[in-house]
Each structure stands twice: as C-alpha cells, then as structure tokens.
Amino acid sequence: MKNNGKAIVHLPGMPGKGPRTMYASFTVSVICHLLFLTVLIFVPGLKIPKRTSHSVIHVNMVARPAKGTPAGTRYRAVLKKSAAKTKKTSEGVSLKTVSAAPKKKAKSINKKPVTHSKSTIEELKNEAEASRPGDVTDAIERIKNQVNETDARRRSVENSDKELAGVEDGVAGGSGTGAGLSVDILTLYTYEIKDLVQQNWAYSEQLADAKSDLQTFLVFEVLPNGEIRDIWFTEKSGNRYLDESAYKAVIKSKPFPPHPVELSRPVVEVPLRFSPEGLLD
C-alpha cells in the first residue's frame, strides 16, 4: 500500500530536481498518506469485515424484526400473533426478539449476552404462553438447539471477535469525522442483510464434491419494503451446487427487513461473494 502511494506521488515530481521539488514531493507524500489513511478509515465498512458477526451490527439496528434461521420464520409469526394480542407490550416484544436471535451467536464470545438472551427468551415465553404455548416452546426449543449448534462454530466466531473490534472502531471513526450519516446506515443495512443470508447459507462440502477455493458472485436488489426485486449472478463458480446453495440462501432469507427510515433510496443493491473457504478453519 505504502509503496504504491509513494510511486504515484513521485512520478510527477521527476522532471524538476531542485530541493524545492523534493520538499513539495515530501509534503505531498505526507498529505497523500494522511488522505489514504483517512479513506481507509472511511471505507473499512466495505472491506474489513470478512467474517463479521451480526452481534455488533445488530445491536445498533435493534429496531428491525428478526428473521434469519429457518425456524425463525415461524417463530416470528408466532410472536407477531402474541404481540398483537398483548398489544401494550408489542413494541417491546419485537425489540427483544431481535436481540434474542442474533445474540445467540455471541454466546461463545462472552457470557453476558447469554444470560440476557436467556432472560429474553424467558420473558417471551411468559408473554406468549397464553396465546400459543406449544408453538412458542417449540420455537424456543429450536432456538436453544441452534444455540448449541453455535458452539460448534465457536472457533470461527472467536476469530471474528477480534475483527469485530476493528469494525466497531472503524464505524465510530467514520461518523466522527463527519461522513454522511446515510452512508453508515446503508452499510449497516447491507451488512444486516448479508448476515441474514449467511445464516441461511447451508453448504456441505460432501455435496459440492469440490475444493473449498471456489467462489460465486451474485447481486440482488432489495426494495424499501424488504422484498427482493431481482437476483443475478455476476460470476458463477462453475460448481452448480455452490451456485445453487448461494441462490437458495438469498431466497430463504426473504423478505428482508424494510429499509431504515433514514435511508431514502428506491432500491438497495447487495453484492455478495460466497466462498466456502471458511469450512476448514
């Protein structure tokens, strides 16, 4: 990176060789480096979080209804019903639902979120039991199972733990230096969508019968109401199973949460690169 920057700066400075030019080049170099670094701080949202976990992003975006895991669909439906019946707490319920679902992944990171999510589940249980006890306990049971399953992925989560800290810093720095607020919201929204898709991505190397260095690129458009308008592959992996699994992951995740109110766009494009390399972590 650094070398590249220097090369760019020095090229125009070549003809004149006086000390003044040297001085100018030096200043320019310093400024450019600064610029570069600032840009790096702005852009990280787009590049760094290779293995983001939703916990951090989700905490910021709490107002979205949770979707995610296959079981989640029904879970949410149940909750909506129960929320409608117990109207006075409906807002609270949907809020908590969000934190309950994503935080299951945080379990392995530290212990606090677990107790929190458990207590949330408890609350939900109490609130919803009256309307549809069987379904809710099932849903809770399923969520508990998922929590257990998450254990198996502990290592990858722990890895992303460190990167998470970086993301948080990057986001804070970005808004601090006065980047447009909507940029952050757009980034967060697309990352939330990415997380939902990732949660629904099932890929078995046994079925793919291929090495893990494959990748497939697809883009889809999300309308303000969270529906998908269009999906297309920009580059296929050549492995039909991987391509299909990526496509299915997107379809299974819809509908997505509606656009945040602050985001005034007719459509949000979400470009995703699926690569199963993390399988062997």
């Binding site: 787009l46 990732q198 629904n200 991505w201 099932a202 920009t234 399988l279």
Partner: peptide, 25 residues
C-alpha cells in the same frame, strides 16, 4: 484511490460470505 479498487473488483464492492452457517443441508 477511488478508482483503483473499483477496477480490481469489477462493478461491485462485494461483501464476503466465506463461511456457511450450516454445514448440513
């Protein structure tokens, strides 16, 4: 600075999903 990354990554800034959540179908 702004053009180079775009040139490298075609038209979109892809978000990576490099580890499936489910390894079982």
């Amino acid at each position: 600075v702004f053009i180079l990354p775009d040139l490298c990554c075609a038209d979109y800034d892809y978000i990576d999903i490099n580890s499936p959540s489910m390894r079982k179908i």
